[in-house]
């Protein structure tokens, strides 16, 4: 079975990019694929704590991320540099591993399929 990596690179509510990427990740997991998700660039904002999507009539991104484990999507990564640049406070209930660029390169190399949908 193929190893999938979904890269989320846009902010959680600025467009439907992140949500649609996650929907695809869940479907890949339903197909028994091994699925990892990497948050980078403004996508790193997806894991910020204290989000309240209901305030603007949207699903709270961190709640969607919490549901990933029900699909056996357990491998979540965030770009360590963006985490520092934006001073993001990670939602504590999420298990997201910060990784530097060389590790991201290795993660991409180790994946059979990389779905980015980047601008």
């Amino acid at each position: 079975m193929k190893r999938y990596l979904f890269i989320i690179s846009r902010s959680p509510y600025g467009s439907s990019h992140a949500l649609e990427q996650l929907e695809a990740a869940m479907v890949a997991a339903v197909f028994d694929a091994k699925v990892a998700v990497l948050f980078r660039d403004e996508g790193a904002w997806c894991i910020q704590q204290h989000q309240a999507g209901a305030a603007i009539g949207q699903k709270t991104m961190t709640n969607v991320l919490a549901a990933l484990s029900a699909y056996d999507v357990e491998e979540l990564y965030v770009c360590a540099d963006f985490l520092n640049t934006y001073q993001i406070q990670t939602e504590p209930t999420l298990n997201v591993m910060p990784i530097r660029l060389p590790e991201q390169r290795a993660l991409i190399s180790a994946s059979d399929v990389v779905i980015t949908a980047q601008p």
């Binding site: 193929k2 999938y4 479907v27 197909f31 399929v113 980015t116 949908a117």
Partner: peptide, 21 residues
């Protein structure tokens, strides 16, 4: 079609190529 058709196509293919925005 459903998103499953994306995953099924990738699983059946030798190569996946995406054309971003």
């Amino acid at each position: 079609v459903g998103l499953g058709q994306l995953i099924a196509a990738i699983n059946n293919a030798d190569r996946y190529v995406e054309f971003p925005a």
